[in-house]
Amino acid sequence: MAAAAAAGAGPEMVRGQVFDVGPRYTNLSYIGEGAYGMVCSAYDNVNKVRVAIKKISPFEHQTYCQRTLREIKILLRFRHENIIGINDIIRAPTIEQMKDVYIVQDLMETDLYKLLKTQHLSNDHICYFLYQILRGLKYIHSANVLHRDLKPSNLLLNTTCDLKICDFGLARVADPDHDHTGFLTEYVATRWYRAPEIMLNSKGYTKSIDIWSVGCILAEMLSNRPIFPGKHYLDQLNHILGILGSPSQEDLNCIINLKARNYLLSLPHKNKVPWNRLFPNADSKALDLLDKMLTFNPHKRIEVEQALAHPYLEQYYDPSDEPIAEAPFKFDMELDDLPKEKLKELIFEETARFQPGYRS
């Protein structure tokens, strides 16, 4: 834990890192770190609560700039109880001085990944967590956004079992017609939660990839272990087919990539493993919904509104309290091709509203 900075004593240090967030945020305490930044909790002297502050230093890398800009653009436009918001952003007053960006968010005690390492969940908890994931996802999908990296560590939890989806750095506007060349190379989302079509096709992607990830998360809540822990690309596919069985001819016809289709045709026939054999203690309604989410063919996979209306979630289902976005989200430009200098300018502009004396 960093010592509390005395008023006016300059930035606090946390594990050798400068955290320049005073005077409003003090009493910093280390939480963890990701690929390009550290997260601390801090005391907000204005709202009198502890908050989470993520320090991001992305400006050396085009990919990190892209992810940072995506996350900020999306989260500043989203407003939903099951999606983490941005409360404040701290950065230098000029673009030349801006080396880091500090993002202030609600402090959540833990995440689903940490929880599943230590606790076996009751059916009631599984049901409530799944409902909140789908409630947040309904809003995301209504904005025409794909999260693309749903996994237990991106689901934040607090002691009252509130759940918030975080990390929109890989999110995209849904565009089933656009052929994202190089899709697989830039697709760094965790393999275990990846839909089979991501490994088999490169053309376009749809909201059904997020539903697949939610199915993987439900299976993990039922058993405290990942359902498809593939060691590499082909191993991942083999794990999936080992449980779902061989795809039907109709399902194979959806695979545009001939090499991928021929690979699947070359494999020995596998039978589907019954879900109640894998999860003998699970609620039968939970397994019915799991089956509809972990469907090989993305066109037959359940959609988020149908999933919310499934009998497993009937005690929570309330369409009048499951809000959607006001308007579909649009990125003005494809960020993939922009140089990091341009992305830095866009991050600077996007964060201006939090600067003292800002006038829109």
Rank of each mutant, 00 (worst) to 15 (best):
A2E: 15
A4P: 15
A4D: 09
A5G: 12
A7Q: 03
G8F: 11
G8L: 06
G8V: 00
G10K: 08
G10P: 12
E12D: 00
M13R: 03
M13K: 00
V18F: 06
F19C: 03
V21K: 10
G22D: 12
G22T: 10
P23E: 15
P23C: 14
R24Y: 13
Y25S: 05
Y25N: 01
N27F: 13
N27L: 06
L28I: 07
L28S: 08
S29C: 01
Y30R: 04
I31W: 08
G32D: 04
G32Q: 07
E33Q: 13
G34E: 01
G34L: 05
A35D: 01
A35I: 03
A35H: 06
Y36H: 09
G37W: 05
A42N: 12
A42T: 00
N45R: 12
N45A: 13
N47Y: 00
N47G: 08
N47R: 04
N47K: 00
K48F: 06
R50D: 12
I53C: 13
I53R: 05
I53V: 03
K55P: 03
S57N: 13
S57W: 05
F59Q: 10
E60F: 15
E60A: 02
H61S: 08
Q62F: 06
Q62S: 10
Q62I: 06
T63Y: 05
C65W: 14
R67F: 12
T68L: 07
I74H: 05
I74Y: 08
L75G: 13
L76Q: 01
R77M: 13
R79E: 12
N82C: 07
I83W: 10
I83N: 05
I83H: 08
N87I: 01
N87K: 00
D88R: 14
I89W: 06
R91H: 04
A92L: 13
I95V: 08
E96M: 15
Q97C: 11
K99E: 03
Y102K: 08
Y102C: 03
D106E: 00
L107F: 09
L107H: 11
L107W: 11
M108Q: 12
M108L: 03
L112T: 11
S122I: 05
S122H: 11
D124H: 08
H125K: 05
I126M: 05
C127F: 01
Y128L: 02
L130R: 03
Q132F: 08
I133R: 03
L137R: 04
K138E: 03
Y139P: 07
Y139A: 10
I140D: 05
H141I: 10
S142E: 12
V145Q: 06
L146V: 07
L146P: 05
H147A: 05
L155W: 08
L156K: 03
L157V: 11
N158Y: 02
N158S: 00
C161W: 09
D162P: 13
L163R: 05
C166E: 03
D167E: 03
F168P: 08
L170C: 08
A171W: 06
D175Q: 04
P176T: 00
P176N: 08
D177P: 07
H178A: 07
F183K: 08
F183V: 01
E186L: 08
Y187D: 02
Y187M: 05
Y193M: 03
R194F: 03
R194P: 02
A195R: 02
P196W: 02
E197Q: 02
N201Q: 10
S202Q: 02
S202T: 02
S202N: 03
G204W: 01
T206H: 02
T206F: 04
S208N: 11
S208E: 10
I211W: 01
V214D: 03
I217R: 02
L218W: 05
M221F: 11
L222M: 04
S223K: 05
R225D: 13
R225N: 14
P226A: 06
P226H: 00
I227L: 05
F228A: 13
P229Y: 11
P229L: 02
G230E: 13
G230P: 09
G230S: 02
H232T: 09
Y233W: 08
L234D: 07
Q236K: 01
L237D: 06
L237R: 05
I240C: 09
L241D: 06
G242C: 00
I243R: 11
S246K: 13
S248Q: 09
L252T: 10
L252S: 12
C254R: 06
I255R: 06
I255A: 13
I256C: 04
N257K: 02
A260K: 05
L264H: 08
L264K: 10
L265E: 09
L265P: 04
L265N: 11
P268R: 11
K270A: 13
K270M: 01
N271M: 13
N271D: 10
N276Q: 08
L278G: 08
P280N: 10
P280K: 06
A282M: 14
A282F: 15
D283T: 15
K285W: 11
A286R: 06
L290Y: 02
L290S: 04
L290A: 04
K292Q: 09
K292R: 02
K292W: 11
M293H: 03
L294F: 12
N297R: 04
H299T: 01
K300Y: 10
R301N: 05
I302V: 06
I302P: 09
I302K: 04
V304Q: 02
E305V: 01
L308Y: 12
A309H: 14
A309E: 15
H310C: 14
P311H: 00
Y312F: 00
Y312L: 04
Y312Q: 02
L313V: 15
E314R: 15
Q315G: 14
Y316N: 00
P319H: 08
S320H: 14
A327I: 15
K330W: 15
K330V: 11
K330I: 11
F331K: 15
M333Y: 08
M333K: 00
E334H: 14
E334C: 15
L335D: 12
D336A: 05
K342T: 06
K344V: 10
E345S: 14
I347C: 13
F348T: 12
F348V: 08
E349H: 14
G357W: 14
